[in-house]
Design a protein around this nucleic acid. Sequence first.
DNA 1: TCCATCTCGTCAGTATCTCTGACTACCAGT
DNA 2: ACTGGTAGTCAGAGATACTGACGAGATGGA
Lengths: 154, 154
Amino acid sequence: MSRDDRAPVAGPSGDAPPNLGILLRAPFQEVVRRISAELAEAGFDDLRPAHTAVFQHIAPDGSRLTDLAERAQITKQSMGYLVDYLEQRGYLERRPDPSDRRAALICLTDRGWAQIHAALAIIHTVESEWTRALGKQRMRQLRELLTELGQITG
Amino acid sequence: MSRDDRAPVAGPSGDAPPNLGILLRAPFQEVVRRISAELAEAGFDDLRPAHTAVFQHIAPDGSRLTDLAERAQITKQSMGYLVDYLEQRGYLERRPDPSDRRAALICLTDRGWAQIHAALAIIHTVESEWTRALGKQRMRQLRELLTELGQITG
DNA sequence: TCCATCTCGTCAGTATCTCTGACTACCAGT
DNA sequence: ACTGGTAGTCAGAGATACTGACGAGATGGA
């Protein structure tokens, strides 16, 4: 269990051709920024970056804390901290797991679902903007190349 | 002054076509992971993710704390915290700025330069691997598309 | 059945990295 | 010299991660 999302990516000030790390970081962070800003505007202003780790990995019919932690690559203690916060604000609820009395099923509430739909809509908007700027053809290429890269890197 | 590197990027478990946020994140984090792991192997095992913000923005002939902070998009107090750490471990040194007695020039030491060269070499290795897997042609396309995207998003 | 062992989640404590606010020392224009 | 702005630090706090230890419940044999 461990994790590392942060981190700029090295290179002294004054590079001529930006390296791939930097090239990838710019659009990635643009997406993150947009989601964060526009979710806040949409009324989800009590969400912080770390909470995305929960929403991204939770199953539609509920997940166990341990599963969430493993998928998000953080400890279950850390995941517990995030889930507590989101439960208090009404995004999630814990239900007893009928098949194991030690466990709880962490489920999205209506508000939780609303947040997910809002976030997906924001991403879709960004993709549309990029498609308009880049052209449909080049956007498809980009998507293909990134998909391949994702397979290469596991 | 603020900053946000972290954060997965939304979407409930069970998406069919991964959105661009996720598509960009995978290779970006692969680069970050590789740099972190291989720098540690190379003897730079006292560096943590946040320190990249310093190395990435420092000018070859030295930078002021305030400049570093602004380029890295964090407060000068936060940058001060990182610089203190790196100075203690011999990656940086503070020299009095001859043109302003309030200021200090933060400069790379030999060890600091060695770290930068090592990090760039690692990125170069990763790029080579990807080029081998993707082909020279497609790698060039990817680089062009990401460069364009970087210009679009500012 | 009973016991050893494993798993689920939590409690407690700590490290890292960020922030805000307040402050000193210094610079620059009037 | 005053006045306002800038460079950097000190102090305190909050968010997000970690490790270690633990209790309750599950589970598979003896």
